[in-house]
Computed example of a mutant assay.
Amino acid sequence: MAALAGVDVFRRLQDQFIDPVTSCLAARFGGAARSSGKLRLTAAGAEFFAADSESSMQLGSPQQDGAKLNAFLHRDTRGDKPEVEIEIDPHLVMIRQVRLPSAAKRNLVDVLGYEMDRLSPFEADQVYYHFTPDPEQQGTDWLAGQLTVVQKQRLDPWYQMLSELGLAIGRVTLVDENLPLMLKPRQSGVARSGRSATMLLWLAVLLLSVVTAGGLVWQQRQIAIDLQHKMQAAREQAAESMRLEEKLSARRKAIGMVSAQRQDYLAVSDILLELTRLIPDGSWLQRVNLNSDSLLVSGVSDQASALIALLEASPMFVSVRFKSPVVRDRRSGKEKFDLTMNLTQGPES
C-alpha cells in the first residue's frame, strides 16, 4: 500500500510540479524544443511532413523505414533532440462519452485505468487514454466527458522508431483537431542539457516524499474507500442503464426489420388489381391461392395458352406456367386451366 502511495505521489508531483519546472529549465538552459516536423499515423502506415511544410514522405512501417526517415532528416541537425508532432487518424482511436462520480477527479488517471476493461474492449496496460471533461457538466455530482483510447501496439512501434532516431515526441493530436491529448508514454526528462537539473529535482522529490508519505498514505486510503463505495453504486446504476439500453436497441431493431419487410411485400389488393387488369374478356378466375412467394390461379378461358404471355408481361409475376394440363369443359366449351407463378415480392399480410 505504501509503495502504491509513493508511486501516486511521484505521479502527481510529476504532473503538477516536475513537468512544468523542467519545461522552464529546458527553455532556460537548452532553448525551446525545436520542431523537426509532423508524423501523421494512419491505418495504412504514416506520412512525415517536414517542419518547413514544403516536403513530405510516405512511411510503410517503422521497422523498415526508420533509416529512410533518418536520411530525410539528416540535412537538418541543428540543436539537440528536436520534437516531432504526432497526428493520429481518428479511425485508429475509440472515442466514447463516459460519466463518473465527481470524486474521481482526485485520482482520475487511476480510476479510468481501473475501469478501462468496462469502458473499452481493452485492459489499461494495452492502451493510451485521455479524458476531456465536458465544461457543461462542471459543478454537478458527476464528472462527464469524452474518453479517447488508442491501442499501444498501433503507436509504440512508431514511438520507438522516433526514440532510436533521437527525436522526442511532441504534441499529440487527432487529425484536423488542435486539442492536445496525452496519448504517449510519460517523459522522464527534457533536453539533454537539462538532465542535471532534472536529477536535482528528482532528489528533492524523493526527500519530500519521505516526509509526506505517511500523511499521504492515510489520505489516499480514505479517498480510495470513499471512491470505492461511490464507484460501486455508479457501476450498478451503469449496469442497469446498459440493460435498459440493450432492450431499447433490440426493440428498435425489431421495429426496423418489420418496417423493412413491409416495404418489400406487395399488398394483396395490388395483386388482385393486377390480375383483374391482365385477364382478358372471355376468361374468368374461379380460385386464387396466395402463398408466401407464389400464386396459383384457376379458371376457364377461351384460349388459356395466351394467358401465360399476358401474365409474364407484368413486373409482379415471373415463371408463369401451367400446373396441370389444360382440359375443355363439356358444358361451356371453354378451357379449364390451373396457372402457377412466382411473385417478385412476397405479399403483405
Rank of each mutant, 00 (worst) to 15 (best):
Ala197Tyr: 14
Ile279Tyr: 01
Leu179Phe: 07
Leu4Met: 11
Gly37Trp: 00
Pro185Gln: 10
Arg287Trp: 05
Thr22Trp: 06
Gly113Ile: 09
Leu181Trp: 02
Ile279Thr: 10
Leu206Glu: 15
Thr132Ser: 07
Arg12Met: 06
Ser55Leu: 03
Ala304Cys: 06
Ser193Met: 12
Lys38Thr: 15
Lys38Cys: 15
Lys68Asn: 06
Ser349Ile: 04
Asp329His: 00
Lys247Met: 15
Gln97Pro: 05
Asp117Val: 13
Ala267Asn: 05
Thr42Ala: 11
Asp8Asn: 09
Ile255Ala: 13
Gln14Lys: 11
Ser56Gly: 08
Arg28Asp: 13
Phe131Gly: 04
Arg262Glu: 09
Met231Ser: 08
Tyr265Pro: 00
Asp110Met: 09
Ile88Lys: 01
Ala313Tyr: 01
Gly60His: 03
Pro101Leu: 04
Thr148Ala: 04
Ile86Pro: 03
Glu335His: 00
Lys68Thr: 12
Ala103Phe: 10
Ile271Thr: 02
Met257Arg: 12
Tyr114Leu: 11
Gly282Met: 03
Thr198Arg: 12
Lys247Ala: 15
Gly194Asn: 13
Ser319Gly: 05
Cys24Tyr: 07
Glu47Gln: 12
Gly37Ala: 04
Leu92Lys: 00
Gly37Lys: 07
Thr77His: 09
Lys253Gln: 15
Ala306Met: 03
Met199Ile: 15
Glu85Met: 07
Val217Gly: 06
Leu311Ser: 12
Glu245Ile: 13
Ser120Lys: 05
Arg99Lys: 13
Pro101Cys: 00
Asp329Ser: 03
Ala26Lys: 10
